[in-house]
């Protein structure tokens, strides 16, 4: 039986990075049909059809799927679930919102944040903020899972799958979307950027975060933050890296004024190269840093920005 990958499409826009990474994982399980549901998602369906490893794209173009609310999305997925053994989502906030709902309606467990696939019923996932790695097998007939995108490369372009339109499933949704508060930015996405510069509580204020942003812009990097920086209002919530924020694995991660709590490390310790700038030489972040610089960030960061 084949695999259903639920693409992340919000307001008609494909989140290509996370979907293409989840596709790489899904393809290890069998032939992959991709569900593309949103309002005005024809272009997104075409983009999906052009990814390698896609068998066909099922396109449900309807305003009720615009922001992928869990209730209508789950009803739609349930309508085709009997054709699939595996139902796969990227482990984004949207995917993690829908997948457990689908699993419960199918009376199966959900397998969250899969980082490796050992076989059709055996999966590897992190627990305890990534301080332990669990291998599980499931006896459930259907396997519903979310894929930790940082653990897989993107599927390549060059496919030419067919796009089929799919019938909308009526759903009296009790939840209605009102608005998004999104900060527009020209910077790369946190989860797909090769370089990330993150600031923590040590940065001290929202104004001072401009130092972090200036360094990031010189490096063509995305900007991240610790929970403490977000809680204090220095940075928006979508910059949070960690156990309960975003999971990233860039080529280069620069942690500035971040102590290195377990929950922060959980989100970034698979980065290829880690740099830490901290004035406390005993900060735990130095235990995972390839290059540690004990310095005041207010000296080191501007110096670095100027030298690049």
């Amino acid at each position: 039986m084949s695999v259903l990958l639920v693409a992340e499409v919000l307001a008609g826009q494909l989140n290509k990075d996370s979907t293409a990474k989840a596709l790489t994982a899904a393809a290890q399980l069998g032939a992959v049909d991709v569900l593309c549901a949103s309002g005005g998602c024809g272009a997104a369906a075409d983009e999906l059809a052009a990814l390698q490893g896609v068998n066909k794209v099922l396109c449900a173009d309807d305003a009720s799927y615009e922001y992928a609310m869990a209730e209508p999305m789950a009803a739609l997925i349930l309508s085709v679930a009997d054709q699939y053994e595996h139902i796969v989502f990227p482990a984004t906030t949207s995917g993690k919102n829908i997948a457990p709902r689908v699993a419960a309606l199918l009376d199966v467990m959900v397998i969250s944040e899969v980082m490796a696939i050992n076989g059709p019923a055996e999966f590897v996932r992190p627990i305890y903020a990534g301080n332990a790695i669990q291998t599980v097998t499931t006896a459930d007939a259907k396997k519903v899972m979310t894929i930790r995108t940082a653990s897989f490369d993107s599927a390549a372009e060059g496919g030419s799958a067919a796009v089929e339109s799919m019938a909308v499933v009526a759903c009296d949704a009790p939840v209605a979307w009102v608005s998004n508060e999104v900060q527009e930015s020209d910077r790369p996405e946190l989860t797909s950027s090769d370089i990330i510069v993150s600031g923590g509580r040590g940065v001290g204020s929202e104004e001072n975060f401009a130092l972090i942003e200036a360094l990031a812009d010189k490096l063509g990097a995305a900007v991240g933050a610790s929970r403490a920086a977000v809680d204090a209002g220095f940075a928006p919530n979508d910059w949070q890296v960690g156990q309960t924020g975003k999971i990233v694995a860039p080529q280069l991660y620069v942690a500035v004024g971040i102590s290195g709590a377990i929950q922060h490390l959980a989100g970034m310790k698979d980065s290829k190269v880690i740099v830490a700038i901290n004035k406390d030489e005993d900060a735990p972040i130095f235990q995972v840093a390839d290059y540690g610089l004990v310095a005041d960030l207010f000296d080191a960061v501007p110096e670095m920005t100027a030298a690049l």
Binding site: L10, Y67, M69, T92, T93, S94, P174, V175, A176, W177, V178, S179, N180, E181, V182, Q183, T191, P236, N237, D238, K246
Partner: peptide, 12 residues
């Protein structure tokens, strides 16, 4: 709290 910022919804 969602991946690209904040989302406002109403729920019955």
């Amino acid at each position: 709290e969602v991946d690209d910022g904040l989302q406002n919804i109403t729920a019955k």
